[in-house]
Every structure is written in structure tokens, then in C-alpha cells.
């Protein structure tokens, strides 16, 4: 499947009771591409994300990873197809050290979850450290994860997500709760990894500096539907987008 999109969705729809949260969303992410999914609160971004990751079963539509139909698969199986994810509210294993968080993902990648003989602590600590090095927190490898600051936890999540050599990274508000300088650093790191490894990245984000500074392509959702798509420049000048965001600054240079 070289050259084709790593992640595709066709006509995803989901309603909760009478509310149509997502209607007919389609998207595609190419290798090495950073795609931002934005929209005001309640636009359906998170619902869309949860359907892509298998957390939520859609009413209609298909999801394909590297050309393979994964619609309706549980998250763990989708992960095994090469999809890493980070959560809006970080989900790490607090009673493990930072290194062990990554080691467990590596062990799972190798299908060793039912190994009762070896010691998990000794498994591939060098590979884990290399990943921690890459996201810049190897100095904390021995710390209990429950003791880390929030910004560092976001980096741990990224290292975990990279453990199975993903082809797709799904990041739900990757920089929420971080200081501005940290945000830029994390997104630059992510962009670098995406380009170097040919990983397709789809992320949602509220911080417009992050979105317009790093996305190759932006998709704008409003009330469950896609209303605009294109390069940052195209999206910025889109009248419908401006109408939706009226009152909030889409323009990094200010109004």
C-alpha cells in the first residue's frame, strides 16, 4: 500500500438519541502528513476520533487502516494494525515507572503478554530508553509515572504511542493543559517524527497557533459535518469557516 493513505474514513455517522453528532464524515491521511481536525465545541471531533479508534461504534461508514477495513474492531486490534493514540486527558499507568510504561507497550507489540517467566523490567530497556530519548524525557525513565508533571505525561503518551512503530498517530488535543512554549516543542517533535518515519498524524486541537503553525492540512467540522478542508491558508480565507468562528480569532496574526 505504498503511496496510498494510511488512514481513511468514508461516510462516518453517529447519533446520540435525537442528536446527530457526526454526519457523513470522510477523511484521508497520507504518510508523513499532519492533519488537524478543528471545529467549535460540540462539532463532533471527539466522536469522530472515538469512532476511528474503535472506542465507539458508528451508525454508518467505514474506517480503513493501510487499506484494510477495520470498521467495528476493538481498539486493541486497531492498535495492532499500527495505530498509536494519545488521549485528551492523559491515560498512563501511574504505578509503573516511565520506562515500564513504554516497555509494556513494546512487550504487547511482540505478543508477550502471557509470558510469566521473564522479568518485564528487563525487557528491551534500551529500545524503551531510545524512545524516551526521542521525546526528550529519558532523564525521568526511573520515575514513577504518577509523579510526573502534566506536560511530561503528554510526552510519555507519545513515547508509548510510538512503541509499536505506528503508521498512524491519533492525538486528541495533544497540547491541552500545557504551557505555550511546551506546546510548540511537542508539536515540532511530533512533526519531526511524522516526517522522519512517514507516520500519518491526525489531531484535534483548540490552540490555533498549534494548528496553523504545524498542520499540513486542516479539516473544519461544524455540527457534525465537514464544512471546509485545505491548507492553512485556504482554510483561513474560507468565508464559512470565518462565520463559524466569528468572534474567536482564527488568524494567528490577530484580527
Amino acid at each position: 500500500m505504498t503511496g496510498g493513505p494510511v488512514l481513511e474514513a468514508d461516510g462516518l455517522s453517529k447519533s446520540f438519541g435525537g442528536v446527530q453528532a457526526v454526519r457523513g464524515m470522510s477523511l484521508a491521511v497520507a504518510p508523513g502528513e499532519l492533519v488537524a481536525l478543528i471545529g467549535p465545541n460540540g462539532a463532533g471531533k471527539s466522536t469522530c476520533f472515538n469512532m476511528l479508534m474503535g472506542q465507539l461504534r458508528g451508525d454508518a461508514g467505514r474506517v480503513r487502516i493501510m487499506g484494510e477495513d477495520v470498521t467495528g474492531w476493538p481498539p486493541r486490534k486497531i492498535w495492532r494494525r499500527g495505530v498509536g493514540r494519545t488521549f485528551q486527558i492523559t491515560q498512563i499507568l501511574p504505578s509503573f515507572t516511565v520506562r515500564e510504561n513504554v516497555q509494556l507497550a513494546l512487550l504487547s507489540h511482540q505478543g508477550k503478554l502471557f509470558d510469566v517467566v521473564t522479568r518485564a523490567r528487563r525487557a528491551q530497556s534500551d529500545v524503551a530508553d531510545a524512545l524516551l530519548q526521542r521525546v526528550g524525557i529519558v532523564g525521568f525513565a526511573e520515575r514513577a509515572c504518577g509523579l510526573l508533571a502534566y506536560g511530561d505525561l503528554k510526552r510519555v503518551e507519545l513515547a508509548i504511542a510510538l512503541a509499536n512503530r505506528p503508521k498512524v498517530l491519533l492525538m486528541d488535543e495533544p497540547t491541552a493543559g500545557m504551557a505555550p512554549a511546551e506546546r510548540i516543542a511537542l508539536m515540532e517533535l511530533t512533526a519531526g517524527i511524522a516526517k522522519a518515519d512517514g507516520v500519518g498524524v491526525l489531531f484535534t486541537e483548540h490552540d490555533m497557533d498549534v494548528v496553523f503553525g504545524h498542520a499540513d492540512r486542516i479539516m473544519v467540522m461544524h455540527r457534525g459535518s465537514l464544512i471546509a478542508e485545505g491548507t492553512p491558508l485556504e482554510v483561513r480565507d474560507d468565508p464559512e469557516v470565518r462565520a463559524v468562528y466569528l468572534g474567536s480569532s482564527l488568524d494567528p496574526e490577530g484580527p
Binding site: 479508534m53 509503573f96 518485564a120
Partner: peptide, 24 residues
């Protein structure tokens, strides 16, 4: 302290994370 035990503990610490790294 084996991978099996770690995966078990991961399910307790955070079921969401455990599932997201392929643990049933």
C-alpha cells in the same frame, strides 16, 4: 513482575490505556 503481571496491573491502572496498547 513478569510481562503477564504487568499487563494485569495495567488493566487496573488504566483500562483505556491498556486497551490502547493492545491488551485484552
Amino acid at each position: 513482575s513478569s510481562p503477564f503481571g504487568y499487563a494485569l496491573r495495567a488493566g487496573r491502572d488504566s483500562p483505556l490505556r491498556a486497551e490502547a496498547i493492545g491488551i485484552d
